[in-house]
Amino acid sequence: MDILKKSFKKSIWVFHLSAAACNNCDIEVLELLTPRYDIERFGMKLVGSPRHADALLVCGAISAHAKPRLLEVYRQTPKPCLVVLFGSCGCSSGIFRDSYSIVGPVDKILKEEDPDVKIVYIPGCPPKPEAMIEGIVMGLGAL
């Protein structure tokens, strides 16, 4: 466990997952990798498999169709895993709250699956890249 704590302080690898988002937060997440913001200088890196990920970046309200896939991806990540919810949709389903195909806020779904899940909320539509960086760094501090 000490090794885990030590490694979490430094470079975390993130997996990005979009479920019924409007695409904007996804683009802003990719924006973080580009020269202007460049989160790789903090050691954060986007990886291709949830099995390599320390943190899960979830954008969007969850649709009924995407829910089983979200849970599957969450089960595949090694624990402890930080879950970062982007945008108003991720935090509270946002403007799509009343829709028939939205099955609820992401945190509720994840807490049903794993009550100990660590969640960071970054509200905004979309949140500014600076806010995203700050949120992820603060989340790491809390772990």
Binding site: A20, S63, H65, A66, S99, I102
Partner: peptide
Amino acid sequence: IGYNHRGIEKLSES
């Protein structure tokens, strides 16, 4: 497709 379906046309009526 269908993972991103949010029912916007129906929401718009409200």
